[in-house]
Computed example of a mutant assay.
Amino acid sequence: MADLKYKPVPHNHAEFLAAARQRPGFNEAYDSLELEYTVASQMLKARAKAGLTQDAVAERMGTTKSAISRLEGAGRHAPSLATLKKYAAAVGCDLQVKFVPQKVA
């Protein structure tokens, strides 16, 4: 059986983002994927809070670690609502989706 103990990798997102924003075209590309990055961030936080590895989530969902890695990778994969619900259940969460009125410019 896979080692299911959670071992977080240190990462300073603010430093990474500050350095990346210096690259030409990065800001436009990053901003266009804001929703995807927000969802991926929430998924990672939920998994960390549950103390689970990608292997453990994959086992609970009946899939593979590589599938979970793709699912958590913002912008590379557009998961269905059914998949997001399964992921949420695997990490002990409920999935909520809501429509927010756009701000009038």
Rank of each mutant, 00 (worst) to 15 (best):
M1Y: 07
A2I: 09
Y6V: 01
P8T: 12
P10L: 07
N12K: 08
H13N: 11
H13S: 12
F16L: 10
L17M: 13
L17A: 11
A18W: 02
A20Q: 12
R21G: 01
Q22W: 01
R23N: 09
R23G: 01
P24C: 05
N27E: 13
E28C: 00
E28S: 08
A29Q: 11
Y30T: 01
D31N: 11
D31V: 00
S32T: 03
S32P: 00
L33Y: 04
L35Q: 11
E36S: 08
T38P: 00
V39L: 15
S41A: 14
S41L: 09
Q42G: 15
M43N: 03
L44Q: 10
A46R: 02
A46H: 04
A46C: 06
A48T: 04
K49R: 09
K49M: 06
K49L: 10
G51H: 05
G51V: 05
L52M: 15
L52R: 05
L52C: 05
Q54A: 07
A56M: 04
V57A: 08
V57K: 13
M61T: 08
M61I: 02
G62R: 09
T63Y: 01
S66R: 15
S66M: 14
S66Y: 12
A67K: 10
S69E: 11
S69F: 12
S69T: 14
R70S: 13
L71W: 02
G73C: 14
A74R: 03
A74K: 02
G75S: 05
R76I: 01
R76D: 08
R76Y: 06
S80D: 08
A82P: 03
T83W: 04
K86W: 00
A88Y: 05
C93I: 01
C93P: 00
D94P: 00
D94W: 03
L95W: 04
V97I: 15
F99I: 13
F99C: 01
V100A: 10
Q102T: 10
K103T: 10
V104C: 04
